[in-house]
């Protein structure tokens, strides 16, 4: 009976305060969508790191004629120099995993093939030279290779793809953190809105709560409808936000980006399924906490 009564009270409250409830739904939805986007950005960075760090190579660029690198002194690398460089690289095993030789033409073709849509495309200009491509067993050991190869005759430069990638990852990271920061502002707005809503509602229902108090209703009976109205509204907002996030990832990333940029890994809807429970539980905790604290302050029992 009491449960039924409480359900009825919650229903009445939501109906009478529909605009309040809708505003809570919307603010929660937008803040959680932003938060979701930020989290997806983070997961995208992680996904790409996993994908790329297995594939990054150290590029030992060889000299071409009239190249700008000082170490080359304008001379192209001779065959003898090539052999010496190759031998040095082989000597660095097991730090070095594999060494490939790639001619300038191959490099250009490969660039055209694989990097046409990639963010790495911009870094491609200096790649057009003969080079040794070196896979490392540990992507972090670039310095070991660089220190022994750099400065050898015929070596124009030693480049670490990881550094280029890291610039890109830092950029993406910053963007996603900005989204998260923005969303936390929105969460703050949501918290304040919930608090104001509850104060308004408590005021508009002071007659009812006054009578409840008078006849000795428990604190729980008096407060529960308020808390539930807020929690229901904000959870609805969070669920809608996760729906929007799902649609964004499903149609924006899985359906579009990963079709267009085939050379890299992207997040999928599984990542949405992974974060959604945390977001929804977080919203439940946050909204019930906010409403409980507000009620303690503004609804005398």
């Amino acid at each position: 009976m009491r449960f039924q009564f409480l359900l009825g009270e919650i229903g009445n409250g939501l109906r009478r305060n529909l605009s309040m409830a809708v505003s809570v739904v919307i603010v929660t939805m937008i803040s959680m969508y932003l938060l979701g986007l930020g989290l997806m950005g983070q997961r995208q960075v992680d996904t790409m790191k996993d994908y790329w760090y297995d594939r990054v190579q150290v590029t030992v660029m060889l000299c071409a004629e009239k190249t700008r690198f000082t170490n080359c002194a304008g001379e192209a690398t001779t065959d003898a120099q090539r052999t010496a460089i190759k031998a040095e690289l082989e000597a660095l095993k097991p730090t070095v995993k594999e060494v490939y030789y790639e001619s300038r033409d191959e490099a250009y073709d490969r660039f055209k093939q694989t990097y046409k849509n990639s963010p790495l495309a911009r870094a491609g200009e200096s790649y057009f030279a003969d080079s040794y491509r070196v896979n490392l067993n540990d992507a972090g050991k670039f310095d070991v290779v660089a220190s022994s190869i750099k400065g050898m005759p015929g070596v124009a430069d030693v480049q670490d793809q990881k550094k280029l990638l890291e610039k890109f990852f830092t950029f993406m990271n910053t963007v996603s953190w900005a989204a998260i920061a923005l969303s936390s502002l929105m969460v703050l707005a949501a918290v304040m809105l919930i608090s104001t809503t509850i104060r308004q509602t408590a005021f508009s229902r002071r007659r009812e709560t006054g009578i409840m108090r008078l006849v000795g209703a428990s604190n729980f009976t008096i407060r529960f409808p308020f808390v539930m109205e807020t929690v229901l509204s904000s959870v609805l907002g969070a669920v809608l936000a996760m729906g929007m996030l799902w649609a964004t990832v499903r149609y924006g990333v899985v359906g579009f980006l990963s079709q267009t940029l085939t050379d890299t890994a992207f997040i999928g809807v599984a990542d949405v399924y992974y974060v959604a429970p945390f977001v929804i539980v977080g919203v439940i905790v946050l909204s019930s906490l906010t409403s409980w604290v507000t009620l303690r302050r503004y609804l005398r029992v």
Binding site: M1, R2, F5, E208, I211, V215, A217, T221
Partner: peptide, 24 residues
């Protein structure tokens, strides 16, 4: 008096029992 204006006489009186969880 402190009655709830949108509730009938019966509902006003019943309210005191409802909030205490009385059976229908």
């Amino acid at each position: 008096f402190r009655l709830l204006p949108n509730k009938t006489v019966f509902q006003n009186v019943a309210y005191a029992l409802q909030v205490l969880g009385s059976s229908r």
